[in-house]
């Protein structure tokens, strides 16, 4: 639809409209992220504390293992400890989203009346908020890690660019995954159980606590068969330059693959769910 209410004609015009609408939604998410300054500062302090703790225990573990542990040497494990914390404000591993609240209080009914797709619209907003978080939480943490924590990033611009792409893909993928959690609210009013389950499992399998490469084989296989390592393990490995060349490209390809799969599942759920939805009150 165009602003004058007339249906848009032509694929080009439709695409332009779609981009403009979602660009605005992205910007509104970005601005919302910008309003919570105190919360961002609090998050930064928490991430920095955990960064210090992780760096200490993990470097000690690499030392104890004789300088190499699960494919990580001292420099790589330091990068891992700091970058996972730097991404934590942007990659949604908590499972919470505005949409879940809107499902619960019934305002989803209004969202469904709007002439934009609920899935892409809410994802655009979440991604906007999440990418903004890189400014007050991600970048300062990388700087802190570099100044005091021994963090070193690759100087090769191509590798850095691929790393940034991988981070953005991880952020979008996490927003789409969290959409699935919220969209289960089409069937059950209360999605808190699923959200908590997502929080516990995603963090562990994404490599938030220890790199998944340290997992025993069966757990490693299990982890790589889920979309969770592409949320944290992959962007951190690509950005830090631990994985380079075609291997890095393959990892980014894996992220794109999961992105398509999770988007498709979300789209199907939206289509099936909007017929199921019951909103109480009115």
């Amino acid at each position: 639809m165009r602003h004058d209410g007339q249906p848009a004609s032509g694929t080009v015009e439709l695409t332009v409209t779609w981009l403009r609408v979602h660009g605005r939604l992205f910007a509104s998410g970005w601005r919302r992220g910008a309003t919570y300054r105190a919360a961002a500062l609090g998050g930064l302090v928490a991430n920095a504390t955990f960064g210090l703790l992780k760096a200490s225990i993990l470097t000690a573990a690499v030392r104890a293992a004789g300088g190499e542990l699960g494919g990580y040497d001292q420099a790589a494990i330091l990068a891992y400890a700091w970058l996972t914390q730097a991404l934590l404000g942007s990659v949604n591993l908590f499972g919470r989203s505005d949409l879940a609240d809107r499902m619960k209080d019934g305002s989803i009914a209004i969202d469904l009346l709007r002439p934009v797709d609920v899935q892409t619209a809410s994802t655009a907003q979440e991604v906007g908020r999440a990418l903004f978080s890189l400014l007050p939480r991600g970048v300062p943490l990388v700087v802190l890690g570099a100044l005091f924590g021994g963090l070193r990033l690759p100087t090769d611009p191509a590798q850095l660019a691929l790393g940034v792409i991988s981070v953005v893909l991880a952020v979008v993928l996490s927003s789409l995954l969290v959409y699935l959690v919220a969209a289960s609210g089409f069937w059950t009013v209360e999605t808190r159980g699923l959200q908590v389950f997502y929080m516990i499992v995603s963090g562990f399998l994404a490599g938030l606590f220890v790199p998944v490469t340290l997992f025993p084989d069966w757990l490693l296989t299990l982890a790589w068969s889920t979309p969770f390592p592409p949320l944290l393990q992959v962007p951190v490995d690509v950005l830090s330059g631990r994985v380079t060349g075609t291997a890095a490209l393959a990892l980014v390809g894996l992220q794109v693959g999961w992105l398509a799969v999770i988007y498709a599942i979300g789209a199907l759920m939206t289509r099936a769910g909007r017929r199921r939805l019951e909103v109480q009150g009115g």
Binding site: Y36, A38, A39, L41, G42, V45, T49, F50
Partner: peptide, 8 residues
């Protein structure tokens, strides 16, 4: 508003 700071 910065309760995350003490969460650290």
């Amino acid at each position: 508003d910065a309760s995350e700071m003490t969460n650290a």
